[in-house]
Amino acid sequence: MNITILEGALTTAQVMLTVAMALALFRMIHGPRAQDRVLGLDTLYVNSMLMLLTLGISSGRTLYFEAALIIGLLGFVATVALAKFLMRGEVIE
């Protein structure tokens, strides 16, 4: 009985995060301008990081924590580089 509560919550959270990732992907593909696409990519990174945390809880292993940390780091670097590129036209001056 207790198992089904947490499993149900984790499955529901994974479905919600999948829908959120699909919406972020829609904004990334459909977005009218480049900054919308960058924002969609940033949201996609954050949602996939939350998805990895959910997977880590459901598998009971701490391996997924490191993957989530790396995805968060890569998302930060990617968004900063893309925003810098949009502003200046080059990343490293």
């Binding site: 509560i5 947490l6 149900g8 959270a13 829908v19 959120a20 939350l50």
Partner: peptide, 24 residues
């Protein structure tokens, strides 16, 4: 612990979903 963890997981996922619906 089951109840608390489930509530926090659902809260986090729904906030992320609401934010992304707003983005779309």
């Amino acid at each position: 612990a089951e109840i608390v963890v489930s509530a926090f997981v659902l809260l986090g996922a729904s906030l992320a979903l609401i934010g992304t619906i707003g983005l779309a």
